[in-house]
Amino acid sequence: MGKLLYSMIISLDGYVADANGNFDWAQPTEDALTVTNDEMSNVGTFLYGRRMYEMMAVWETDPEVAAQSPESARFAETWCATDKIVYSRQLESTHTARTELVREFDPAEVTALKDTREHDLTVDGSTLAAEAFRHDLIDQIMVLVCPVTVGFGLAFWPKQRLNLELRQMRSFRGGVVYLSYDLLRH
């Protein structure tokens, strides 16, 4: 049985992008990427909304992105070898391998995926994750916190109470901190 993980890079004040949609500050160090890659080693499916999918597709479509560093290359290899489900009413088709386009997010289908998969799943993107949180589907949260505040933008955290138990915390050069939490059920 797989777990559903919510994983993103965020600002210290809890945003994945600033008010203009910029996230150029989200540049983790190589050692932080190593931890992220290690955490992704048991992931068999990425769940994306349209915007996150379009952003992440570069790991397959732009070789220069993977060539940035050894850990970038490692992530690109993992990304290309992993199944992806994109939830979108707007996309006509996807342009990457191992990618399925689904029109509606169905909590029952995601529950069935969790129950039938050997590997974990991730939900990436705060809008899609908020939907998964509403249906109590998320099991773990993993964040790389960058030492910057952006004041306002696209929030990482859903607008609901979450009770969390810290699993792991690591700090890296440049002030990036990795946090991993289990979501506690009421």
Results as ranks from 00 to 15, higher is better:
116 T>W: 07
176 V>G: 02
69 S>I: 13
167 R>H: 08
79 W>D: 04
171 S>T: 08
101 L>K: 08
126 S>Q: 02
49 G>R: 00
84 K>L: 14
186 H>V: 08
62 D>S: 10
114 K>W: 05
178 Y>E: 02
48 Y>W: 14
40 M>Y: 13
41 S>A: 12
131 E>A: 14
17 A>K: 05
169 M>N: 03
76 A>E: 09
127 T>L: 13
34 T>I: 13
115 D>I: 00
59 W>Y: 14
135 H>N: 12
86 V>H: 03
181 Y>H: 13
34 T>M: 13
108 A>W: 06
49 G>P: 01
134 R>F: 05
114 K>E: 03
32 A>M: 14
19 A>D: 08
103 R>E: 12
15 Y>F: 15
110 V>M: 01
21 G>L: 13
115 D>M: 08
115 D>K: 10
139 D>C: 07
82 T>M: 10
57 A>I: 07
77 E>L: 12
60 E>C: 08
121 L>P: 01
2 G>N: 06
148 V>G: 05
32 A>H: 04
69 S>V: 10
107 P>W: 05
34 T>D: 11
131 E>N: 05
186 H>Q: 14
170 R>N: 12
165 E>K: 15
157 W>K: 12
185 R>Y: 11
186 H>L: 14
39 E>I: 06
75 F>L: 12
28 P>H: 11
25 W>K: 11
30 E>S: 15
124 D>F: 02
158 P>V: 03
139 D>A: 05
100 E>N: 03
74 R>T: 10
122 T>G: 05
101 L>M: 10
45 T>M: 13
48 Y>R: 03
10 I>S: 04
142 M>V: 03
119 H>S: 12
15 Y>I: 06
159 K>F: 08
124 D>G: 07
169 M>H: 11
59 W>T: 02
20 N>T: 10
156 F>Q: 01
30 E>Y: 03
43 V>E: 04
160 Q>G: 07
107 P>R: 06
180 S>C: 13
186 H>R: 15
155 A>D: 08
69 S>D: 11
42 N>C: 14
62 D>P: 00
7 S>N: 13
16 V>G: 01
68 Q>R: 15
91 L>P: 06
167 R>T: 05
3 K>A: 06
158 P>S: 07
158 P>L: 11
109 E>I: 05
128 L>T: 00
61 T>M: 13
73 A>V: 02
88 S>A: 07
158 P>A: 09
182 D>K: 10
61 T>R: 13
2 G>C: 06
51 R>M: 12
78 T>W: 15
82 T>V: 10
89 R>H: 14
18 D>Y: 05
144 L>Q: 12
129 A>N: 04
117 R>F: 02
95 H>I: 08
70 P>T: 05
106 D>F: 09
140 Q>G: 01
74 R>N: 15
152 F>I: 00
107 P>F: 07
129 A>W: 03
116 T>D: 10
25 W>S: 08
105 F>G: 00
153 G>I: 02
81 A>I: 01
53 Y>T: 09
